[in-house]
Design a protein around this nucleic acid. Structure first.
Length: 423
RNA sequence: GGAGAGAUGGGUGAGAGGCUGAAACCACCAGUUUGCUAAACUGACGUACGGGUUAAACUGUACCGAGGGUUCGAAUCCCUCUCUCUCCGCCA
């Protein structure tokens, strides 16, 4: 949620930011300001009347104590008149407050000044590309064929058990998953992140806090009986650790990492985009999350980018880093770097990580604050990144490292898999 | 799933219609004392939304699990819900 104060003091800046994100209803900014002004007016008159009521109530109490019943009754009559008025104003205020929130919740976050203009993924800015694009041997195949050959995962079996997009990993395929998770977690822990194992279902307040609700309702699986949502990413439960918290400045930044399965409904794609492990309803991911001082959050974002880079280098995968353009960024993000890994057999780049600074957009909803050096309570910044999502890493690992007689496991991963070849 | 008890500030915990935004103790913070630490003493110490201010000061309203109700007045009484604990049942 954009801070109301920003909209009040810098409406033009807000409009410009929203335009960069290709938000359609920019006139909502002016509507919001009107509602806000009205709301404050009503709130003031209401509080004024409430104040009078409070004073009278006290006086009535006094009078009763002194036995001056008649005077007390006269005052009671006065209060009755005030109450009618305050009831009316309360109703108005509630309406205005909910109107205001309804609008506020629709605004995406404002983009950072470095975010490039643009609407489509093609307009994302490629910052750098690292690593050799491998030339594959004759007869090299996409990962779904490799998986079949070595019995690493089985999508049809998943269809039988659940449905499309729920793979069954088996044998070395399963072990590879486990190895990658451990490898990623160990790196995060080494970088100072505290590991947590969060719930994989969250309540409505948590889903709202990180921005999944009300915007992306349809992307989450919803257990309606208990009104829980299956997490689309560990970001949701982990960031919500800090909901309604005031953190001492000296304790910032808070750094957490978590492995979790992720559940996404993601309707509406087809063809090669969803072949094999390219797009799944359930997948594994290690997430890193930080709650940061506003002055430091962009330095921290760079650190997180570096963290992900090192992982990809150790896995010996060619990657590139993109700075997302305004139109392709997520709803809640102020600046997002996407990581893509080259999938040699599919001959395309696959997104494997997204690292973002949300500034105060999430923390404003979450009420995640810190006490600064002047003892003032302020909103912290929240950041997160995938470090890393497994399926496409597995896909490119299998494709890029395939040889005529099997798939070579990168050296950094061998201590975790305890085999160096899939053959 | 059944029965009972409970939910108050960072923590423990008092309060049982007006004197309570809330005792006391602990923790935290600032200071005094001290060679240093400890102890002792003094003081400050919730949040949100408004008003006010360059910023403070100051000030209004709301908040004692959540929502509703009774009342001139509710942490306190009533209703609904949620959660926690104890016992029983079931269970990895």
């Amino acid at each position: 949620m954009i801070e109301i104060n920003t909209i009040r003091t810098q409406p033009d800046l807000v409009k410009k930011g929203l335009a960069k994100k290709h938000f359609k209803d920019i006139q909502l900014v002016d509507e919001l300001l009107q509602v806000d002004e009205q709301r404050r007016k009503v709130q003031q008159s209401l509080e004024d009347i409430r104040g009078k009521e409070n004073i009278l109530a006290k006086e009535i109490g006094e009078l009763f104590k002194q036995g001056k019943k008649d005077e007390a009754e006269t005052k009671k009559a006065q209060v009755t008149g005030l109450k009618e008025e305050s009831a009316k104003l309360t109703e108005q205020l509630n309406k205005l407050e909910s109107d205001q929130k309804d609008i506020l919740v629709k605004f995406p976050n404002l983009p950072h000044s470095s975010v490039p203009e643009g609407k489509t993924p093609e307009e994302n800015e490629v910052l750098k590309q690292v690593g050799e694009i491998p030339t594959l041997h004759d007869g090299a195949t996409p990962h779904w064929d490799i998986a079949k050959k070595y019995d690493l995962f089985d999508l049809e079996l998943g269809v039988k058990i659940t449905g499309a997009g729920f793979p069954v990993y088996r044998g070395k395929g399963a072990k590879l998953q486990r190895a990658l998770v451990a490898f990623f977690l160990d790196h995060a822990i080494e970088a100072g992140y505290e590991e947590v194992i969060p719930p994989y279902m969250v309540n409505e307040a948590s889903a709202f806090g990180t921005g999944q609700l009300p915007d992306k309702e349809g992307q989450m699986y919803h257990a309606t009986e208990d009104d829980f949502y299956l997490i689309p990413t560990a970001e949701v439960p982990v960031t919500n650790i800090y909901r309604d918290e005031i953190i001492e400045e000296k304790d910032l930044p808070k750094k957490n990492t978590a492995y979790s399965p992720c559940f996404r409904r993601e309707a509406g794609s087809y063809g090669k985009d969803v072949r094999g492990l390219n797009r799944l309803h359930q997948f594994e991911k290690v997430e890193i999350v930080q709650i940061a001082h506003p002055d430091k959050s962009y330095d921290i974002l760079e650190d997180m980018v570096k963290h992900v880079e090192v992982l990809l280098q150790k896995l010996e995968l060619p990657y590139r880093i993109l700075r997302l353009c305004g139109g392709d960024m997520g709803f809640a993000s102020a600046l997002t770097y996407d990581f893509e890994v080259y999938s040699a057999a599919q001959k395309r780049w696959l997104e494997v990580s997204s690292v973002s600074n949300f500034e105060t957009f999430q923390t404003n909803r979450l009420k995640t604050r810190f006490r600064d050096e002047n003892k003032k309570v302020r909103l912290a910044h929240s950041l997160n990144g995938s470090a890393l999502a497994l399926p496409r890493i597995v896909a490119s690992l299998l494709e890029n490292h395939q040889t005529k007689d099997g798939v070579t496991i990168p050296a950094a991963l061998v201590p975790y898999t305890r085999f160096d070849k899939i053959a």
